[in-house]
Design a protein around this nucleic acid. Structure first.
Lengths: 146, 146
DNA sequence: TATATTTACTTGACATGTCAACTATTGATC
DNA sequence: GATCAATAGTTGACATGTCAAGTAAATATA
């Protein structure tokens, strides 16, 4: 089926994209029974880490490395589900502060164990040393300072 | 900014997702001036590799590890741009054969050099040995036979 | 202080990923 | 040969990513 012996630089790129795809699919599948998507889960975790004040929309977007419009609508859905509440800032009325609700925190609490198990299972094919090595190689790829 | 010392198994997962995200964005940016998206480019390359017969929709979907509905609409757009042509099969009238057009081939020909340069640049932070190592580690992660 | 610029979002439009449901065929079975 | 099941796609609906434009409020400037 795949007789193609790829040059090494193409093989790396494809391997990274495939691995990420697989991880995303598996994570999405794990979260589906809880009626939450991977991105919604990420936003909730970011907001849990920002209690009790919450964060304004642009800050959330920055942390997700994503464009703002997507974040606005993502939070629209989280608010509709009652997992996040938004309040317009009094000091700067352009800003909208987003906070996780108790219901959001309860959902995350239910997910903590499954997510931990997922992360461990996802990398269980590698020894701890190889895990560190993989992380380091991906960091170097970014031109990350060593 | 990131004071969080992540446990190694979470660090790996996040590193993979971040690297893939970065690659996807950069690739999309490189292709944008040519009015083609990354997925459309992938389908075109698959179809170039399947000349002259082409492939039927489900086969393309398999090779892209994607759900069929997405592929149908992806090819709708490629056909609208004149880069792909579809013909219903005579032997099995359920099947639709998709072939790249001369215009599609010309587009890919224009892209070959930039794409090659992109792939090389994307991994230039790693030595050839490290590139191989990275590919191998990602393969092991999948539980790939060694 | 009136105007111009910047900032923080929001909205609209389109590409894509994915599930569910539907259509058209083909193949299998009685 | 008629009926049922499996196969190949398509369509509808919704989440998301992204660009371009628009809105409202704050800030800088003349």
């Amino acid at each position: 089926m795949s007789p193609n012996k790829l040059p090494r630089h193409k093989a790396v790129v494809i391997a990274i994209l495939h691995s990420a795809d697989r991880l995303r699919r598996q994570a999405t599948e794990m979260l589906a029974p809880h009626d939450i998507t991977l991105q919604q889960f990420n936003v909730l975790r970011i907001l849990r880490g920002a209690r009790p004040d919450g964060l304004c929309t642009l800050t959330i977007a920055e942390r997700m490395i994503e464009e703002t419009p997507g974040v606005t609508r993502l939070i629209d859905r989280l608010e509709k589900k009652g997992l996040v509440r938004r309040v317009r800032s009094a000091e700067d009325r352009r800003q909208v502060w987003c906070r996780i609700t108790p219901a959001g925190e309860r959902l995350l609490a239910r997910l903590d164990d499954p997510v931990e198990a997922f992360d461990r299972a996802a990398v269980h094919g590698l020894s701890p040393a190889d895990q560190d090595h993989l992380t380091a190689l991906l960091g170097q790829l970014h031109g990350e300072p060593i």
